[in-house]
């Protein structure tokens, strides 16, 4: 199998690294959450892509169908997507509360605000 034959893995790794980079490199709380979502999305692909067999069908025993695709990864990722949505929603909700409390969603400004209020301890 050539390197291109594994192209879904390349996309997975690219999304994973890009997402993680955004989380680390960006100071904006919303952008961090976007990066986190991209990072989680890469995992969906990691699970689902190997679950697909070319020419495979749903695992229902019937005449004429011999090649079955494993449905379990899809089910697992359905769960993971729900978890991802819940995480994103909670992250955004906390970001809204931070905006209300600090008047900013830039990490450096928030940290500076805490330092100015004498609460650096």
């Amino acid at each position: 199998m050539s390197a291109f034959g594994h192209y879904s893995y390349w996309i997975t790794v690219l999304l994973m690294v890009a997402g993680l980079y955004i989380v680390i490199a960006r100071g904006n709380l919303i952008k961090k959450l976007v990066g986190l979502s991209i990072f989680q999305t890469s995992v969906y692909l990691l699970y689902i892509a190997p679950g697909k067999l070319i020419g495979g069908t749903a695992p229902i025993i019937a005449d004429g169908f011999r090649l079955y695709t494993n449905p379990l990864p899809h089910v697992l990722i359905l769960t993971a997507i729900v978890v991802g949505v819940a995480t994103l929603a909670l992250g955004l909700a906390i970001a809204v509360r931070i905006r209300e409390a600090y008047g900013s969603i830039e990490e450096d400004e928030i940290l500076a605000a805490d330092r100015d209020s004498g609460g650096g301890a």
Binding site: L29, L33, F39, Q40, I94, R97, I98, A101, D114, G119
Partner: peptide
């Protein structure tokens, strides 16, 4: 009660989610 609790929760959310995602990978 302290507003810094919000930032602490946010930071924990980011790192905790990265940790859980690493686990699931």
């Amino acid at each position: 009660r302290d507003r810094r609790a919000l930032l602490a929760a946010y930071q924990y959310l980011i790192l905790g989610t990265i940790g859980a995602t690493f686990y699931v990978i």
